[in-house]
Amino acid sequence: MLPASDPSAASVDAFPTRAARPLVVLTAAQADGIYRHRFAVAHELGHLVLHADATGDSRQEKQADAFAAKFLSPKDSILPFLPRRMDLARLAVYRCRELGLISDTTASRT
Rank of each mutant, 00 (worst) to 15 (best):
A29K: 08
L72W: 04
V25E: 01
R97L: 02
V93E: 07
I34D: 15
S11I: 08
K75H: 14
S8N: 13
T27K: 05
L91E: 14
L48G: 02
T110M: 11
P16N: 06
V24Y: 07
A31H: 14
A19R: 09
P3W: 01
E98L: 05
I34K: 11
P83V: 06
P22R: 02
A64M: 05
R84E: 14
T55M: 10
V49F: 04
A9F: 00
S77D: 12
H37M: 13
H51W: 03
R90W: 10
D13S: 15
V25G: 03
I102M: 04
F15K: 01
G56S: 06
A29L: 11
R36H: 10
R36D: 14
G33A: 13
A31L: 11
K70Y: 04
A31V: 12
D104E: 15
S73Y: 14
E61V: 02
R84H: 07
A28T: 12
R97H: 04
L2A: 00
R90P: 01
T106N: 05
H43N: 06
A14V: 02
V93G: 04
E98K: 07
S73C: 13
R21A: 14
S5N: 06
R97G: 03
E98N: 10
M1A: 12
A20F: 11
A31D: 15
G100L: 04
L99F: 09
E98D: 14
F67M: 00
A107G: 01
S8G: 10
R97N: 04
H37C: 12
L79V: 00
S8M: 11
R109P: 00
L2P: 03
S11W: 06
K75F: 15
A29P: 09
K75A: 15
P83W: 05
P83M: 06
Y94S: 14
A31N: 15
G100P: 03
A29I: 05
L82H: 09
L50Y: 03
V41R: 09
A54W: 15
D104A: 15
F39A: 08
G56T: 00
P80L: 02
R59D: 08
S103G: 03
V41F: 12
A69S: 08
D87E: 15
L101S: 01
A9I: 00
E61A: 01
A19I: 11
D57A: 05
A29T: 06
D104H: 09
D104K: 09
H47L: 04
H51G: 00
D104Y: 05
A19S: 09
E61K: 03
D6L: 04
G33P: 13
L23K: 06
P16K: 01
L48E: 03
R84D: 13
S108W: 03
P80Q: 01
D13G: 13
L23P: 00
Q60N: 04
T17C: 14
E61D: 02
F81G: 10
T105V: 05
F39K: 09
L88Y: 13
A40K: 00
A31W: 10
A52M: 10
A9D: 04
T105H: 04
K70D: 12
A92I: 11
Q63M: 06
T55W: 04
A14C: 07
P74T: 03
A20S: 10
L23F: 09
A14W: 11
S11H: 08
V24L: 05
S11L: 10
A89K: 15
E98R: 10
R90Q: 14
L82I: 11
K70M: 13
A28K: 13
L2E: 08
E61S: 02
R21I: 13
